[in-house]
Amino acid sequence: MNMPLDQVKPLLQVKHLKKYYPIKKGVISKTVGYVKAVDDVSFDIYPGETMGIVGESGCGKSTTGRSLVRLEDPTAGQIIFQGKDLANISHKEMRKLRTDLQIIFQDPYSSLNPRKRIGDLLAEPLLAHKLATKEEADKKVNEIMEIVGLPKQYKNRYPHQFSGGQRQRIGIARALMLRPKLIICDEPVSALDVSIQAQVLNLLKDLQKSLNLTYVFIAHGLGAVKYISDRITVMYLGKVMELATTRDIFENPKHPYTEILLNAYPIPNPHERNRNQMVIEGDVPSPANPPKGCVFHTRCPFAKDICREKAPELTGKAHLVACHFPIDERNA
């Protein structure tokens, strides 16, 4: 991604995406309220880039990712991909578009069918979309297995015969079978040990280069997100707090939440343990009952009256921030 963003056409555009889950109560299941998992999220994804989405649990990052491939039906908003609005097309049409949109899940233990051999698991997408005959699919399986670093003689094994890292490679291989343009990576390394995490992150990076892939990389581990992303979206309680290039997010964060998140991350250097840490009090409020005004005001050390009343808009051109009092050029 060297070209300035305004000269490239986005691959996918998310506009005012909302996903509300109804809260039902009583014998007739009356809807008494909504959990606002994703509440008015907008961003563009450009070809060849990696967009990282970070935030704490319950911030809506996974729901956002799943909505992009219509594993969740959005409540409102648009997802524009190749001239079509993914949020409002039929499931039949969506099925066709899934050849271009794939997803890798967090838990490599539960996202592979335990009764199927790896070869069959990998061939399935091609056969389901009627894109290849059995023989062609078989050839393709060999090819992809080699790309992700699995010996092809493992084809006849079942998922339980693999380690966590290998299973995640299988998950990646399955996503690659249809040669998609965009892959949603939903916490792909969170369940893996550190030495295996590095293997998988490096593999994802290499594949992106050689196959010209675009990623949406969802994670709560900031280190992994920084390593792989070109731009980062920081979410909190279903809303985007800040969106900027990886460098800006880490070197020049404007939203207090981003700064606190970066600061809370323990640094693997014992000489820095006595640094001034900003520890914020309290928990993330429930998305069923988000605070009025800015959703972060209950925990924000800089909150003023206006923050309790009015929700800030996400503003800015390349570096977007939703805060009434953004930290401006603090390091300048």
Binding site: I196, G223, A224, K226
Partner: peptide
């Protein structure tokens, strides 16, 4: 050493490639 080098950390320089430990336990 391998463990330390395989952690993606937020203070790492931008273009540093992670060293992974091959194989598994």
């Amino acid at each position: 050493l391998g463990l330390m080098e395989s952690i993606p950390h937020i203070t790492n320089p931008d273009d540093m490639r992670l060293t992974s430990i091959p194989g598994s336990v």
